[in-house]
Design a protein around this nucleic acid. Structure first.
Lengths: 342, 342
DNA sequence: CTGAAAGCGCTAACAC
DNA sequence: GTGTTAGCGCTTTCAG
């Protein structure tokens, strides 16, 4: 089970050559039915398992895929990883997870590290601080398989799996509007991220539809994606100190939604009395919050699965893949009381 | 960066043999200072990275460690994995994560799978349904490195990193007693798990200390660790339908704490008015719950780190390790209002 | 001090 | 239908 049997052991035991064993094991045509049966039975009996490392060396593939995310301890990403793992496992790939903590340097180092480990492909969700995607471009140009999920690079031509951020954001914002709010702020992730733009656009479109003017002072970004508590506190303070303070906030990031709630409550603001809230998050427990949160939820598990399937297909493709698709999946709006007018 | 340079390329370019290059790269003594410098500089220049797969084949080590947990999308485990990853990454190991979903069969298959991938060691937290630990015994007897964390097998002699479950449970239960409750139920994970016993013991000790009699009908187990919603609902229903209904519940599992809250609220029970609650969980957002939860929190990140350090030390030990330690780390009690008398 | 060669486990020409 | 052999990238005797 642990000290493994090799093809050689089988060959010796059966008095045949290693290539015969190899052929039998791989179901080759050019082999005697008798010999084949013999080998297969013996292999089964001694519980032979091919050495994946030797295979990798030979085939120049590692049967592993690298994952780059900002952090594991985040509901969205842990659910996505769950999806990734479920597909990868079935397809005989293993998954190497790395975390950027939203830093470009860590991201870059992680990619290098994964490459030096000869992963067969990469599943990437960009860090909030990343603006330079040239390393991905370089790899893609060489035909290296990369699939982006959630946080994709707009200018790179490859497979992507993303949520319908525009629509999700639109729906969330409109929920606040329908509650009777007009002064709605928007707190979101770094401007570097495409998802931030899309979510901003959705927010803006909802305001537009209802004839509400956009106010620049109501738009706030956290460039560290909420990893730095002080940054979040700062922008919230600015928002709440405004002469014409917003009555509601639509939040465009999982982490920010949770931490904003926490900070606002800490400061003694009543939600939704003083300030109503709705935002993106994949946490399943927000229904237990006081107040229960109105959220936009993404199908993280499926996104992980889809991205992995696309990646493995690309990896195993006989021909260089030139046609890339962007899968856009629907988000889910769950209305609870945090978005109500008091 | 992606199509890698080999030792051979360097040898050819410099007009030396591959063994010379290898020696230079590995800082061997038996090599000319000149040659060494030349090789090192050239390798640096063309950004040479050794092929880890070839190394693995040669050394018969994969520089990877396998992780077996019930699920990733769980606050405790995602935090622990974060810790595992942080150490492993620095030590040049990569981490392969597998999930049991609390099933023994999945656990067993995962271990086999990891072994066939030639991981150098295993980091295991047992599934709720596991009773048979013979496969670990078999491996340990052969000297294969395994470190258990959180959910350890009591009868196996190897390194373990666990929380002080007894004390944590004692503290949590005593908090409820101090709030003025005497009718305190205990809802916990499968009896198969050692942690369930330890947490039960802590619960019992707290009752004992305060002269409260233990009632068998107040003790409930979920053998699927909360993975099956119906199971949790069933035992809660039994508890709440008791003639002499408990006034409080102390819950011995992360997942159960959250899902009990959710179910009880769904059924319209006031917490803590109708039923007070305290329990183990590593969720950071329970302070935002209605009511904020009184919890026992484990240092999951550190537990992950410690376990990984112990494992790597064992893997890299020159001599068979015979002396095993069990590290017990303190839990943290955070009292909030869910445990109050109304 | 350096080169040649074997070998880690496996596959795939190439012989016979 | 089966055996022999080279080679994937690297380390490590063994010669010299």
């Amino acid at each position: 089970m642990f000290e493994s049997v090799t093809i050689k052991d089988i060959a010796k035991a059966l008095g045949v050559s290693t290539s015969t064993v190899s052929r039998a094991l791989n179901g080759s045509y050019e082999i005697g039915t008798e010999t084949k049966k013999l080998v297969l039975e013996y292999a089964e009996k001694i519980n032979y398992r091919p050495n994946p490392i030797a295979l990798s060396l030979k085939e120049q593939k590692s049967h592993s895929i690298g994952v780059v995310v900002c952090e594991v301890a985040n509901d969205y990403f842990s659910q996505a990883i769950n999806g990734i793992e479920s597909i990868a496992y079935n397809r005989g790939y293993h998954v190497i997870i790395t975390q950027t903590h939203e830093s470009f340097d860590r991201e870059s180092a992680n990619v290098k590290h994964l490459l030096s480990r000869h992963v067969d492909g990469l599943l990437v969700s960009l860090a909030a601080q990343t603006t330079d995607t040239s390393q991905y471009k370089y790899l893609l140009d060489k035909g290296f398989p990369i699939v982006f999920f959630d946080r994709a690079a707009p200018d790179l031509n490859t497979h992507k799996v993303v949520a319908d951020n525009f629509q999700g954001s639109f729906n969330g914002t409109e929920t606040l509007i329908n509650s009777g709010f007009a002064k709605i702020a928007h707190l979101t992730n770094s401007n570097n991220l495409l998802i931030s733009h899309e979510r901003f656009d959705g927010y803006k479109a909802a305001l537009d539809k209802h004839g509400i003017e956009l106010r620049p002072e109501y738009i706030k970004h956290c460039n560290h994606g909420g990893m730095i508590q002080d940054e979040v506190e700062l922008v919230l303070k600015e928002l709440m100190a405004l002469d014409d303070r917003p009555e509601a906030i639509f939040i465009g990031s999982d982490r920010l939604t949770i931490s904003s709630m926490s900070i606002l409550k800490k400061w003694g603001f009543k939600v939704p009395g003083d300030i109503a809230i709705a935002g993106f998050t994949n946490s399943d427990v927000v229904e237990l919050f006081d107040p229960p949160l109105t959220v936009i939820r993404q199908p993280a598990f499926q996104i992980g699965q889809m991205a992995t399937e696309m990646l493995i297909k690309t990896i195993e493709s006989k021909w260089p893949v030139e046609e890339f698709t962007t899968e856009k999946v629907d988000t889910q709006l769950i209305v609870r009381s945090s978005s109500n007018k008091a």
